[in-house]
Design a protein around this nucleic acid. Structure first.
Lengths: 78, 78
DNA sequence: GAGAATTTGTACGTATGTATG
DNA sequence: ACATACATACGTACAAATTCT
């Protein structure tokens, strides 16, 4: 799964979909850290702003938790 | 009084405000030692760097004096 | 005085937060 | 969407100063 710059769908939405799938499929497990924003930039070839937009989307859906200076983690099922 | 990681105000500013208040209220008296940086870390749940930034702020205002190997003390009124 | 423990000083490295162009 | 810059925050490691045993 990756992101397509030619696809008219906003990159951040594409990326959010990819990450969402990784979480829901269990590839990323609860309490596990997501790759850092810097790493995600390299992996998906998009800017940090786009990364952060995607993360904000997942965060709004309570799928992840972000801690400054720490990282972003898959939210444990409460 | 404590600090709130969700509050948008920088943690070091929040902590500086807390300590400042303890000094101005007389809860911490002149020549009295502040808790060590290690203790402050545990009490407020923030990193040492954040602690030191808060202390640096009070030091800049001449409210405290720090001595290496000894500790940090409330500055006596000159 | 020796050695361990405690406290502050300094320097990195990494990660997120925010603002600007 | 991208690039850049700086601020904020965490963590680690080691050095230096002081105190305690």
């Amino acid at each position: 799964m990756t992101v397509d710059h030619l696809d008219p769908t906003p990159l951040w939405k594409q990326l959010a979909a990819v990450l969402r799938q990784m979480i829901e499929s269990g590839k990323l497990k609860p309490r596990n850290p997501l790759p850092s924003e810097s790493t995600l930039q390299q992996e998906y070839g998009v800017s940090r702003g786009t990364i952060r937009k995607a993360l904000a989307d997942l965060r709004a859906d309570d799928l992840i938790v972000t801690i400054a200076g720490r990282g972003t983690f898959v939210k444990p099922h409460s």
